[in-house]
Simulated assay, not measured.
Amino acid sequence: MRKTDNLFARLAIFTVGLLIMSLGIVLMIISDFGASPWDVLHVGLYYQFGLTIGTWSILVGFTILGSSAIMMKEWPQFGAYLNMILIGLFIDMYMLLPFFTEPVSWLGKIMMFTIGMVIYAYGMGIYLSAQLGAGPRDSFMLALQEKMGWKVSNARRMMEVTVLIIGWLLGGPVFIGTIIFSIAAGSFIGLALPQCRKITDKILKKRTLDKEIDRSANI
């Protein structure tokens, strides 16, 4: 099945995945138990220069996409731009909800952070399963890997350590959860992605079959 098949359904799955992933991001930030390295940077920029966390996510993503385009001498996939914009919008939307408040107890902080990380992993699994392209940060990671000859793991580690240091210097929320995320997030995503791909493939195959039945009935 070609990626162009069921484009509307893929866009819907892609958007739902980003909506879920953004919820995970916000829960980790609000938990006050730490955030992912990129979100440490976004929050640090927000603390120092204003705007919103979501706006900084978009601006940083735009800068990274531009760098990727220059390095690879080609425009990133459409999904990378959509990813950049929607995640920023969704983050700001969730941050405005009044019932999302920082937990008082340590147990509450840990629970909110853990739930956020699981939701993040499954949201990423869902949006990636739509196969409309990776986000700007992953695009830049692949550009570094190709141009510098590094392993993907080394390129990702270099990126995350760099943005983490910058975010920390800007006052971003570095704490125990940041370390946990850096160590465990890959494993969570590794578990979530195959499950999400199976569900997405079933949905897309069913829609394709339904379309074929409709065409046959109209002949």
Rank of each mutant, 00 (worst) to 15 (best):
F62Q: 02
Q195L: 11
P37T: 01
I91S: 04
L23D: 02
T63A: 15
A69I: 08
G167Y: 08
A185H: 12
I20K: 04
D214M: 13
L41P: 00
L59A: 09
K205Q: 14
L11F: 11
S187L: 09
G50C: 03
M28V: 09
T208V: 09
T162P: 06
A217P: 02
Q195A: 14
A130T: 00
V43T: 10
I30M: 07
T52D: 01
N83K: 03
L7S: 08
F188N: 04
W38R: 06
P98D: 03
L19D: 07
I29C: 01
I183G: 09
Y120G: 10
I165N: 06
I20Y: 06
L51S: 13
L82I: 12
F14T: 01
G108M: 00
L193K: 04
F14W: 05
F175E: 15
R10I: 09
L169D: 12
I20G: 02
K206N: 15
I213H: 10
G172V: 07
S182R: 09
A192E: 05
N154E: 15
I53R: 04
T4N: 10
V60H: 04
M95N: 09
Q195T: 15
L97Q: 13
M72P: 09
F181E: 11
G135Y: 00
I203Y: 08
D210P: 02
G17Y: 00
K205I: 12
L107F: 14
C196D: 01
T114W: 01
P103T: 04
L65K: 05
T101P: 05
L19K: 07
L65V: 07
L209V: 14
I25L: 10
S139M: 12
L142I: 12
P76L: 02
D39P: 02
G190I: 05
S216R: 11
S67N: 13
K205G: 10
L89Y: 09
S153E: 14
Y120E: 12
T55P: 03
K3D: 14
D214N: 13
G66T: 14
F49L: 05
T178A: 08
G135R: 02
I180F: 09
W106K: 15
L23E: 08
Y81Q: 02
K211F: 10
S182G: 12
M71C: 01
A35R: 03
P103G: 05
M111Y: 08
P194L: 02
L204G: 01
K211S: 10
T4H: 13
G123F: 03
F8I: 15
L142W: 06
Q145D: 03
G108K: 03
V174S: 08
T178S: 09
I126W: 05
T162W: 13
L128Q: 07
G133S: 08
D138M: 08
G177A: 09
Y127E: 03
V26W: 00
L86A: 00
G177H: 08
L51D: 05
A185S: 13
A192P: 01
F78K: 10
A130W: 01
E146Q: 11
S57T: 11
M141N: 00
N154S: 14
F99D: 09
D32T: 03
A9N: 10
V26H: 04
S57M: 12
I13E: 00
V118G: 06
V60T: 06
L11M: 11
I70R: 13
T162L: 15
G186V: 04
W150R: 07
K151R: 14
R197L: 13
R157G: 11
A185P: 02
D32R: 11
V104I: 13
T178L: 05
N218I: 13
M28A: 10
T178Y: 06
I219F: 12
